[in-house]
Design a protein around this nucleic acid. Sequence first.
DNA 1: TGGGCTTACTTTCGTCACGGAATTATTCAG
DNA 2: CTGAATAATTCCGTGACGAAAGTAAGCCCA
Lengths: 382, 382
Amino acid sequence: MTSWLPLSPAERSVAIEVLVHGPLSRTELARRLRLSQGSLTRLTKPLIESGLLVEAAETGGAGESRQGRPSQPLDIVAESRSFLGFKITADRVYGVVTTLRSDVTGRLDRPLTTHDPDAVAALLAEMTAELAGRHPAPAGIGIGVGGRVRDRTVVGESAFLGWRDVPLGTLVRERTGLPVVVENDVAALVEAETWFGAGRGLDRFAVLTIGAGIGYGLVLGGSRVPYDEEDRGFGRHWIIDPYGPLTPEGARGSATSLLSIPSIRYQVRAATGRDVGYEEILAGAAAGEPMASRVVEEAARALGTLVAQIANLAMPQKILLAGEGVGLMDVAGNTVRDTIRSHRHPLAAPVDLETKVSDFHDWARGAAVLAIQVLVLGRTGE
Amino acid sequence: MTSWLPLSPAERSVAIEVLVHGPLSRTELARRLRLSQGSLTRLTKPLIESGLLVEAAETGGAGESRQGRPSQPLDIVAESRSFLGFKITADRVYGVVTTLRSDVTGRLDRPLTTHDPDAVAALLAEMTAELAGRHPAPAGIGIGVGGRVRDRTVVGESAFLGWRDVPLGTLVRERTGLPVVVENDVAALVEAETWFGAGRGLDRFAVLTIGAGIGYGLVLGGSRVPYDEEDRGFGRHWIIDPYGPLTPEGARGSATSLLSIPSIRYQVRAATGRDVGYEEILAGAAAGEPMASRVVEEAARALGTLVAQIANLAMPQKILLAGEGVGLMDVAGNTVRDTIRSHRHPLAAPVDLETKVSDFHDWARGAAVLAIQVLVLGRTGE
DNA sequence: TGGGCTTACTTTCGTCACGGAATTATTCAG
DNA sequence: CTGAATAATTCCGTGACGAAAGTAAGCCCA
């Protein structure tokens, strides 16, 4: 599973810089990478010849032309290859096609009727064929799974699939002939946001996802801190309020019990007897319904506490809230922000908090980014 | 304030490896630094000629000789230079002399009767002269101060000294003629433990100090995460239990209110009317005195919660508890460990927790390590 | 006792990445 | 049209590195 372009470390850094930070002139690249202009000429030449980079036609609009010879921005040929990303949930598989820049050019999803590894691999192969038929030459596949993943190929353990040591990467590669990268879904989303999203260019960056469960990822020095063990289940034992609610999903007062979508729905159902959807609960809270308001406000305080803890202890420059459940911020953002402030030093810089609603195709896109990192640029990872 | 040895990056990495990880043969160094043996010969030659390294006489005991030519371990000449480290507290200045390896070869402390910057600098110069008289050629001075420090020379703000933008580094250098490095005291302790203490060789490492206040430092990828703003006061707003005690030192239920020595003494004094020393309170708790037990147990639960939060969110490989207040662990270590466990995923690896009682001379030693890093090895820091 | 084996270190040599300086290219300002 | 300004290229010297061969210094075993 080596990258098909043998790039030297210096060439790789050039390619990544252009890929992540858009079109850049050689002079600008020299400045950013602390290399001489001469070196940049040398490094870019083979990259242009191999077709990975092009000299962008546009010099950047008429208005901003300065004196002197105009710079010649270099850009990645984003469409030269496409990548596939998949996210596997308990009952559905979501797939996307992306460019090198991780722009989504196609999507697809299919129900998952069995958790048998071979059947799942077959479904992935089928979806690959369908997506590949509509787009040029996929260069590789990334797969995101909730659970522990080893060596970017083997699903060590995944509770919701009932898997243990399933060599998913190999199974899919055998059926598709394409290189495959398997990774934990949260890890993939974090990498994607680090390269192309909210964490772009940051040194320290944290991601908290709210959805069926609570996910967390930390990026330091530009690379993700490996999970080791915790993974998906971590929020179930992350106690925020020892007197908080008890739900089937986690320990009393845990992040999962307070914040995850199933737990919030459970709390409302237990109190009112009605099974209400998540969005409806948020709408109810916004409209002032007492029960929904109580649960949502409590969730907002928990979220504020959690974000403040992350800010205090991991000291990221930015925290991204992602997942299907971040609508909470729209309804109770002020409570969240107030709670954060009360848990921080008054002179501390305000937490840079960004919110991004993500659906399952965004998770799939994260997996595709993993494939880009590993396959194109030869990042072995960890 | 440049290092007096102009070391190339490769030479520096060799020097640091030998300094931190003891005597190492050239072959072993080549393995660790991923260089060829030939390069090691080249790199070590000037270091040996300059006197920084020597070929250790001992080949390592008779028992462990293997076949083949015996290796020739290289060692730092730890005594070739000495370094001074100072820790400034509100009423006393502590100083140490250390070797290059940061072994303490002398110590001294003096009362501090005024906080006037010039007077403090004069006292430091006086102590420098006294320590230098007893030891060979100090190569530099490190100073640790509670508060914010800029550029390793200027104390930006220090509440307990009433300082604001005091160029302490310059003041002391003018009086001693020696290069001076000023740094936040917690930062200095963290660096010292990273290089020579509990965090040696680790990639991710956290330090929590318990004393007059609560200090926290995080090391990732071998280098310390810069504090930006928080610093010393951070524990005062780090709420652990919203229903916890209210003390003069911090917000209700904050880490400082629950854990710092003054707050624990305050709680006991408020309840019993007697002013009791910290060690005495711990002894009382061990003996089963109800009031002391209650306060100490509550502190232990708070500590466990805090450690678990650090472990969950910053994911260090090891956490060091340091400071004057870690005696708490001897009395209530089980409570701390139980609390940690209850806040962690059951399958998560147990937290690697180390305890190290530190007195003020240990803080001074930390400052000396900063001087070693900057002056000998030319680490500009941050 | 000495020859072979093993491992550590040194030497030599070729390669290559880089920086610096000079050169060429391309525009704008008068 | 000339000169100034900025971008990119070319050329060359330096120096760090690895590969491989050579040397040193001990064991093992006859």
